[in-house]
Nucleic acid binder design. Structure first.
Length: 402
DNA sequence: CTTCCACAGGAACCAGCGGACC
DNA sequence: GGTCCGCTGGTTCCTGTGGAAG
């Protein structure tokens, strides 16, 4: 295919009307199947319209269950109302994603920025930064919403110190008020929170259930209308994307990603329509990317065990713990690395199972013992790709090709 | 019915490390 | 600047077990 052809295809493709509508951070005008959550959150936050400080809220839910979207949506509404109905109190919203801003300093730095308080992005102590933040905030009759998305990252990296201070800030303020909204998809998160923070932060709690397959289909249909040209989507695509995304739990982000990537593949292939096959390819592509990422970040022994499982599977129909362990040991010897015990390897195989890199299930072979049979759950391509930047390891795969 | 394989997986313990605390 | 503490990832030792073979 020549470059002219590629560009021509791109230009003539009539697939996406507006791709942005499928991006994970896009907040739509209408959020299907989250009415209950929207209402509940609105009820909690509504006092803000009259300038009264709402309770702090803590929102839980698995990834892709609409936590961020609902929060942004409700706050946007409340902001518009507040602008029209409450002149004396200024309502502000500071949205911070703690995955990126995961230190006390960066959170406070961002908060200062929201208040247009100029502070150096390094150099001050957090205590000083906090003082300046309070100063800037308290100058006016502000009502500030601090949205801490993925707040578990902040706590994991920097502890709950800022959180503690933020939740206790109100008595120190004369004019302003602060209300905190914490969002997390780590359901065990509260366990490692200081109980004092827990009680103030969790004045109100909201739990978001995963979407069902049907609900995902509705969401996709709604977005697809805005994102694709009419008639471009084959009717089987949306149900398929919904089903694929619902395999683990109803994750709307995944579902939307699938739909978007399916569209992109169709576009690349120069197809006038997005077909079922494109969705399947999209699924494979996304899975592969995820697997590659996981493999890349694995410690050396875990990588070796994955390779061992792959090698055993290549010469036999099924791999057992014992065989994998033997192969793993010979790999270790080749690389002159100390080997782990079988006990640990058994655990690592379980970890790999959890990560979706292998499928392991325990079976009893009667007289011939009880073991796990292990299958690789990822493609050879993904494995090679994941090991690409470690030359020693990737040659192992090729070297042993008997 | 018993035996016995080839591990599973629990319990206790240990080394190393970062962070709090004096 | 030592020390204490909790956590992670590892080891050692151990008991438990499903079911084909005998």
């Amino acid at each position: 295919m020549s470059i002219d052809e590629i560009i021509y295809r791109m230009l003539s493709a009539r697939i996406f009307k507006n791709r942005e509508k499928l991006r994970p951070d896009y907040v739509p005008e209408y959020l299907p199947h989250r009415e209950a959550e929207i209402n509940k959150l609105a009820e909690i936050l509504a006092p803000a319209v009259r300038g009264v400080r709402p309770s702090n809220v803590f929102i839980y839910g698995l990834p892709g269950t609409g936590k961020t979207a609902v929060t942004k949506y409700v706050l946007r509404k409340i902001e518009t109302y507040a602008r029209n109905y409450s002149q004396d109190v200024k309502l502000k919203v500071a949205y911070i994603n703690c995955r990126n801003e995961n230190t006390s300093y960066r959170v406070l730095f961002n908060l200062c920025n929201y208040l247009n308080e100029r502070v150096p992005f390094t150099g001050l102590s957090t205590a000083e930064l906090f003082r300046r933040f309070i100063g800037a905030l308290d100058k006016e009759k502000n009502l500030l919403f601090v949205v801490l998305d993925e707040v578990d990252f902040l706590v994991k990296v920097s502890g709950d110190d800022v959180l503690y201070k933020l939740t206790r800030i109100n008595p120190d303020l004369h004019n302003a008020k602060v209300s905190i909204i914490g969002i997390t998809n780590d359901l065990k998160f509260v366990e490692y929170l200081d109980p004092r923070v827990k009680s103030t932060l969790g004045e109100e709690e909201l739990v978001f259930r995963p979407y069902t397959t049907e609900e995902l289909a509705d969401i996709l249909a709604d977005r697809a209308k805005q994102a694709f040209y009419e008639g471009v989507l084959d009717e089987a695509v949306i149900p398929l994307c919904a089903t694929l995304a619902a395999r683990e739990h109803g994750d709307a982000r995944r579902a939307l990603d699938l739909l978007r990537v399916a569209g992109e593949i169709a576009e690349r292939e120069g197809s006038p329509k997005v077909l079922e096959d494109h969705a399947r390819k999209a699924y494979r592509e996304i899975e592969k990317d995820r697997a590659v990422e996981v493999i890349r970040s694995m410690p050396i022994h875990t990588k070796l065990i994955t390779i061992a499982a792959y090698l055993v599977r290549r010469r036999k129909s099924e791999a057992t713990t014992g065989e994998i362990y033997e192969t793993y040991r010979s790999l270790c010897k080749k690389l002159m690395i100390d080997e782990l015990t079988q006990r640990r390897v058994s655990d690592i195989i379980n970890e790999l199972d959890m990560l979706g890199i292998v499928n392991a299930k325990v079976v009893s072979k009667g007289r011939y013992g009880r073991t796990k049979i292990v299958n690789l759950a990822i493609s050879e391509k993904a494995l090679v790709e994941g090991l690409k930047n470690d030359l020693r390891l990737s040659t192992l795969i090729l070297a042993d090709s008997i």
